[in-house]
Design a protein around this nucleic acid. Sequence first.
DNA 1: GACTCCCGCCAAAGC
DNA 2: GCTTTGGCGGGAGTC
Length: 911
Amino acid sequence: MQQAGGEMGTGDKENHSSEPYRSVLKTPLKQAATSHSVLTEIQPDCQPLTTPPKPKEILPADPWTPTSNLKILISAASPEIRNREQRRELSNSTSEVLQAKHCLQEHLSGDEYEKSQPSRKEKSLGLLCHKFLARYPDYSSTAENNYICLDEVAEELNVERRRIYDIVNVLESLHMVSRLAKNKYVWHGRHNLSKTLQALKKVGEDNKYTQQIQMIKKREYEHEFDFDGERNEEMARSLGSNEHSEMSFVELPGMEFRAASVNSRKDKSLRVMSQKFVMLFLVSTPQIVSLEVAAKILIGEDQLEDLDKSKFKTKIRRLYDIANVLSSLGLIEKVHVAEERGRKPAFKWTGPEVLTDSQDTKLETTSTTCPPPMSESITSKEQCSKNLFPSRGKQNFTRHPSLIKLVRSIENDRRKIQSAPTSPVKISASTDQNLSAFPSKIAQVPAMAKHQLEGQSKKVKEMKMKLSGSALESNLSSPEVVPKPDLPHTTAPSQQPVLTQPLGVGPLSHSPVSPVMLPQTPSGVSYAIYLHPSQAHTVTTYSPSFMLQPLPCTNVTEIKSINSKVLNRITTEEGDNQIATDDPTKSSTAKERSTIKSETSSQQCLKRSQALQDSNLIKRCRSDEESLDTSLGESIKNERPPSNSSQMNHEMDSSQEDRQKKAKMLDQDMAGCYDQCKREDIPEDEDKIKTKQDIPVAFAIPAHETFFPSGYLIALTQCTHGNKAGFSNKEKAGVCSLQHTTYSSPIAGVIPVTASELNAVNIPAFHITPLNIMLSPTSIAAAPVLSNPCLNSSNTSSAQNPSSSVLNFTLQHVGLIPAGVQVPANPVLQHVPVSSQPENVSHSSENRNLQEEKPSVPKEPQESQTVTENFFRTPGGPNTVSSLSANSDGTDRISQGTLYIPQRKLEVSED
DNA sequence: GACTCCCGCCAAAGC
DNA sequence: GCTTTGGCGGGAGTC
């Protein structure tokens, strides 16, 4: 009896006032312990665990047993059983319940009684939510009683009303329920879920949650390594002053909250938190959000400066509450992401895929979710959007000027080059909200296959094998034509969606190297940057807009090969799972990542940096020579129906045919090389942690650069073993991979090549010798992960200052000059304008296992060259970059040297 | 020891 | 003034 009194005493006031008997039913272990302690305290000589005096009350007909509570729980989970039990239970009087409980306590020892109680898990909010949801249909009908009385529900579920509030609040955030009146809610089910998710995603994009996540991760990294305190503060201020801090609850038209109370504490409301939490998933790619990041973002929106442990812990608690409900809804799933300091809790979005574009709501529903209407009116969305930020002028985000330029340029190029309906460009929608002008439907496609591809390294290997075989058989000169692995998720007729997506990383990857997905360019080229935690911040901080050299997205094999062999790793600090799209290749990359020596990466990075200049030069040249355009169009034609290539098709001449033949031959060589690479033993261990010194290197390339040289794909897709003379098999493989990557890339022209290099290789005047970059422990390397070969749209504005090597290559392939002839480098090419997209850099912390273990190509240091921070910028502004040769001897060649990326120094050597 | 998250205190808002 | 809501954080249970 005293125990009962003690329990009552510990109940909250609402229990006292309105739910007296309910508190009796709740049987947390904690209460037992409390009762015990109370007894001990009040009656020191009382045997806490001894069976209390048996009351003389009549034993209940249905005595409680150790499994009685479980039965109740089970019945609650099953609507039929639940209702039956509930009816029976409700028919019982309060006294009977008390008697039952007392009886149970009487018959069980303390331990037994505890064991008889539902375990902690059985009382979890998630299970409770399941029970709650079981009461109502997923899709309510008017015929049903959809009203929810909190008191009744609480009673029926034998929980405090407080817990019901937790559930209802989250459901409210998804507009699955709405408050009708005091203690009264209306059940909507999932009817509005698609709309809500769409709205949330839109809001999340508008709020630049992607960037916020990037910043958070950047801060984490910087804080962890204590790199730059000032920058940390700056970042903190940036986040703390985030204009989105005032974001209010997202409402759907017609579903505004009726009660003012819902907005009274909205700033910290579980509803708002829930919506923000969901937003993070919807805008992230892969759709995995760690609790830590989510909590920091949510806190940051409140008061970053007040960030302390207690607040953080509280936020985490709330996020767990929300996550439990969302998990019950089948929207998320708990996972863990491995980090250097151990694994961290995270959640993966398992709900319907949400597209923000028009008709757009493509929902891959979960087992419990029925597909909502496929289309939502834009008007509705706009209304919703207005609702979301009724009073926030700041909500209108403008595209960065550089992006506007880029978009325009790309659009122009697209009109010129891409006319086919199946144009890859269309498929590769930008995931960057800043590039919202480009529908991102396609960008979402990769995510759809994420789950299927995750953890399927075997599949990836098989795909690689297929690709390799295909490559051998392929007569296509362009990597784009390489048969692409069957992607289960690809629903679009065009091949690009999945493949053109940036090489994502397995969401669960936990390598210290954080893969960062760079925002896709409007043309759809996506990039992934793998960041080493210790270097993540460097590049992005000051070169926010640089982009990685795109790799052909045609197949996984290429990517893998690149990652494992050539160390095309991109290290930027910004961006974590944001823009990275879920690509099947991603998982393969993450899982098959092998360690690579930084030297090799450095080499390639350096090369690419130079290539960047070259690409610009090519662009410039292209504007002067139609032949270049023809070449570009030709490459495109190879993978498109002639009828669709309006501008390109009419210019097939003998020189082009010649080039195509060359391309075929080279492709075969490439395939062989590729095969070789494929055979190499590539570690699949994702968890191998690299030392900070073992820095993956990748080269960041301005976004513009990635678009340009698409027209030269044909010539660049080749890889000849002869070029690798002097290299070991692995080295050859690496070189081949590099070449493959480089050449097959639409931006092949971006790859820097010196005249001497051209002489050294047999490949069509365009060979890239592996560069060895010696990275300091803190240096950053970025590697192209994936490119969209289909995205041939080039930015003429960015075509500037090409290097002689590229020019030679171009001219040779165009037939303007003999293969052996070399055109002198143009010393004028010192600065290459590049578009910056700082805000677009994404960072994926979940995918950090990208460091390769494979030995890198031996470095052969020669000369040194210093590249300033401005490497990614030009004096003209954020959209330009200084060439690598800015501090060199005036030539456009980089044979060896030090590459400085924002406060990071890269030791570059060349073979 | 860290992670989870149940539990209920208690204050704000609602009626 | 009572009730409803729900923010919040202690601390127990779990891993």
